[in-house]
């Protein structure tokens, strides 16, 4: 019998080394051995992604590697998540996410989406090339706490400013997160956003920090 720690380590290593099959096998074994799937997500898959973020920060990994790690993570998540009891999710938050109209690139958006998925958020993914009004409508419909928008090109990021204005007018408490290659911290500030992710990669770092915080919270709760 493989111990829980060994399996979690295999999940983490599989994510870091983008070994989808290894992750799938370990995830299945977690279920077969009767270990807690949520614990496996947080201390295995998410822990691996935190290491990936560190490798990215140190310029050892770049976006292609991170994308492959994300595939490995999802391979595990798809197996484990259906077995997480609904009331066990750590965060009850909801997020609306999409790439603004005029932009058909969605790599950064999908990476950030993954972070929310892992964190247990309910994600309303509008996809890409999304008309600006749809962000507002979806936020209102779902009463989501967070709206995350991405634009990969300078030529499309202007749409985000409009969306922020429209949402903040109707509901000033919504937290808005911007990301994408051309969006600098200055631009995010100028547009009135609450959060900012510098690039697809930086979105990874930001998202991973978020996962890191979730894990800390969970560990504190366990001790308490």
């Amino acid at each position: 019998m493989t111990t829980k720690q060994e399996l979690f380590q295999q999940l983490s290593d599989g994510v870091v080394e983008y070994q989808e099959d290894q992750v799938k096998e370990a995830a299945q074994q977690v279920l077969d051995e009767g270990y807690d799937p949520l614990e496996a997500i947080m201390d295995g898959l998410a822990a691996g992604m935190v290491i990936v973020g560190d490798l990215y920060d140190r310029n050892e990994y770049f976006v292609p590697e991170v994308l492959m790690c994300a595939d490995a993570l999802y391979a595990g998540l798809d197996i484990l998540r259906p077995h997480v009891p609904k009331d066990a999710a750590q965060v009850k938050g909801q997020v609306v996410i999409g790439t603004v109209q005029g932009d058909v690139h969605d790599i950064g958006k999908n990476l950030v989406k993954m972070m929310f998925d892992v964190g247990g958020f309910t994600v309303h993914d509008l996809g890409r090339d999304v008309p600006l009004e749809s962000f507002v409508e979806e936020q209102m419909r779902t009463d989501s706490e967070i709206v995350a928008m991405s634009a990969m090109m300078t030529t499309t990021m202007m749409g985000m400013k409009k969306v922020i204005q429209m949402i903040k007018e109707k509901n000033p408490d919504v937290a808005i997160m911007l990301g994408g290659a051309p969006v600098t911290k200055d631009v995010a500030d100028l547009f009135g956003a609450d959060g900012y992710a510098e690039s697809a990669g930086n979105a990874v770092t930001e998202g991973i920090k978020m996962i890191g915080r979730l894990r800390e919270l969970r560990q504190k709760e366990k001790k308490a």
Binding site: Q101, V104, T156, M158, G159
Partner: peptide, 10 residues
């Protein structure tokens, strides 16, 4: 669209 949007390949 009333916004400035460059052509894209959807």
């Amino acid at each position: 669209s009333e916004d400035i949007l460059y052509p894209t390949i959807p």
